[in-house]
Design a protein around this nucleic acid. Structure first.
Length: 256
DNA sequence: ATGGTGGCAGAGCCA
C-alpha cells in the first residue's frame, strides 16, 4: 500500500491537481495540509466518487488538514491534543486499517526568535508528548505531513545560507529528533542517502526549475514497520503542472 | 535589495 503526504496550499485551487494525481499515483492513504477549507465546504462527495473516503479538520483561509483513504474509513479521530488549546486546525490522527496515522501541519515559525517561532517549538513539544502515548498504544504508527523542518543539511539546497534560519535551526531539528526518538524512522532516508532531494520550493525566483528547495514533507513510521517498507519517494510531477502547489507529494510504500 | 510569488480576500497576513 502507498501512503502519501501533500501540502496542497488551498484545496479549492488544487482539486484538479489532486484528482489527476490520485488517478496517476493510486495512493491508498493521503494526508493533506493547508486545505484552507471550512469542513462544510470540504469536497468529500467528489472524492468519494473517486473511491476515497475522507475525514477533515479545517478552517477558513489558513491551515486545514484531511485524511483520504481508499479502503478503510478512518476511525477514532483526534484533532486536539491536551495542553494545546489551539484554534488552528493542524492535527488529524486516525486509525486507517492496521495503522495509526497522524497527519501534522507543523507551525511554520516565520523567523528564528519570533513569537511564531516560540509557538512552533511549544507546539512541537506538546504534540510530541501526545504522540508518545500514541506510540505506546499503537505498534504501527505513521506520523506524516508538512513538518516545516529540514532534518539535516542534505535536505537543504544551500546549507550555508540556511544555517540557523527558520526551517533549519538547531532547536527545530532537536524538536524533530525528539519526535523520532519515540521510535520512528524518516522513511525517505531508509532508501535514499543523497542530498538534493526536496519536497518544497519557493514560488519565487524560479526556485523549482533551479532545484532550490528543502525536504520538509516527511513520512515517519514506527521502527516496527521497517520490515514492511517497500520504497519511499517524492513525486516531482505535480510540481511541474500549471498553477502548482509549492510542495510535492512524499510517499512511503508498505507491504501488506 | 527586507525584494521576489502565491492564496485569501478584498488590505494585509501568512507562507
Amino acid at each position: 500500500m502507498k501512503i502519501a503526504t501533500w501540502n496542497v496550499n488551498s484545496l479549492n485551487v488544487r482539486m484538479p491537481h489532486l484528482k489527476q494525481w490520485l488517478a496517476a499515483a493510486q495512493p491508498d492513504v493521503v494526508a493533506l495540509q493547508e486545505t484552507k477549507l471550512e469542513d462544510s465546504k470540504f469536497p468529500d462527495t467528489e472524492l468519494a466518487a473517486l473511491g476515497y473516503r475522507s475525514v477533515f479538520s479545517g478552517q477558513k483561509t489558513y491551515n486545514g488538514v484531511a485524511l483520504l483513504s481508499r479502503h478503510d474509513m478512518p476511525q477514532n479521530i483526534v484533532t486536539d491534543v491536551p495542553g494545546l488549546d489551539d484554534p488552528q486546525r493542524r492535527i488529524l490522527i486516525a486509525d486507517v486499517g492496521d495503522l495509526r496515522v497522524a497527519n501534522l501541519y507543523v507551525v511554520n515559525g516565520q523567523a528564528v526568535g519570533s513569537e511564531k517561532y516560540a509557538y512552533k517549538l511549544d507546539w512541537l513539544a506538546r504534540v510530541t508528548d501526545y504522540l508518545a502515548n500514541e506510540a505506546a498504544r499503537h505498534p504501527n504508527l505513521v506520523v506524516l505531513g508538512d513538518f516545516n523542518i529540514a532534518p539535516d543539511d542534505r535536505d537543504v539546497h544551500d546549507p550555508a545560507a540556511w544555517k540557523d534560519q527558520i526551517l533549519c535551526s538547531e532547536p527545530e531539528r532537536a524538536a524533530l529528533r525528539r519526535l523520532l526518538d519515540l521510535g520512528l524512522l524518516d522513511s525517505f532516508r531508509e532508501f535514499h542517502s543523497n542530498d538534493g532531494a526536496f519536497s518544497w520550493w519557493d514560488y519565487r525566483q524560479a526556485a523549482f526549475r533551479r532545484n532550490l528547495g528543502l525536504r520538509i514533507d516527511l513520512v515517519l513510521a514506527s521502527q516496527n514497520l521497517r520490515p514492511r517498507f517497500a520504497g519511499a519517494s517524492i513525486d516531482l510531477e505535480p510540481r511541474r503542472w500549471e498553477r502548482p502547489s509549492d510542495h510535492a507529494p512524499a510517499l512511503l510504500e508498505l507491504n501488506a
